[in-house]
C-alpha cells in the first residue's frame, strides 16, 4: 500500500500502484499516476484511457493486451489499434499500465 497525493486529497494505491477505490479516479489523479510512471499524458494517451474506461463500463473487466488492441482498432481504427502504437504510448506494457492510469482494476489475464 502507498498513497498518492493530489491537491489536498490522499489516495490509496495497492502494491502495484493501482487505485484501491476505483471511484477515486479523476483526470488529475490520472496525471499524477502518469507522473509516477514518467509519462506526460498527451491527447494520444487520453483517447486510449477514455477508451479503456468505456471498455470497463461495457464489460466490467480490464482487457488483456489482445482485446485492448482489438477494441482500439474497432473504435479508433487500425492505425491506433496496433501493438507498436500502444506500446510506444505505455512503455511497452499497454494493458497493465493504461489500465492503471485509467483507474481500472489490474487485468487478470495479462500476458
Amino acid at each position: 500500500m502507498s498513497t498518492l497525493t493530489v491537491g489536498d486529497r490522499n489516495i490509496a494505491l495497492d502494491k502495484d500502484g493501482f487505485l484501491v477505490e476505483l471511484q477515486d479516479w479523476s483526470r488529475e489523479v490520472a496525471e499524477a499516476l502518469a507522473t509516477r510512471e514518467s509519462i506526460a499524458l498527451t491527447a494520444d494517451h487520453w483517447e486510449i484511457l477514455e477508451l479503456l474506461r468505456q471498455f470497463y463500463q461495457e464489460y466490467q473487466l480490464s482487457p488483456a493486451t489482445r482485446p485492448l488492441i482489438k477494441y482500439t482498432a474497432l473504435k479508433l481504427g487500425a492505425e491506433k489499434g496496433n501493438s507498436p502504437h500502444l506500446n510506444r504510448l505505455f512503455n511497452g506494457t499497454p494493458a497493465k499500465l493504461a489500465a492503471k492510469l485509467a483507474g481500472l482494476p489490474k487485468p487478470t489475464n495479462c500476458i
Binding site: F55, E58, Y59, Q60, L61, P63, R66, P67, K70
Partner: peptide, 10 residues
C-alpha cells in the same frame, strides 16, 4: 457483462 467481452478476447 463479462460474457459480452468474449468476442473481444477472440
Amino acid at each position: 457483462a463479462n460474457l459480452q467481452a468474449l468476442p473481444m478476447f477472440g
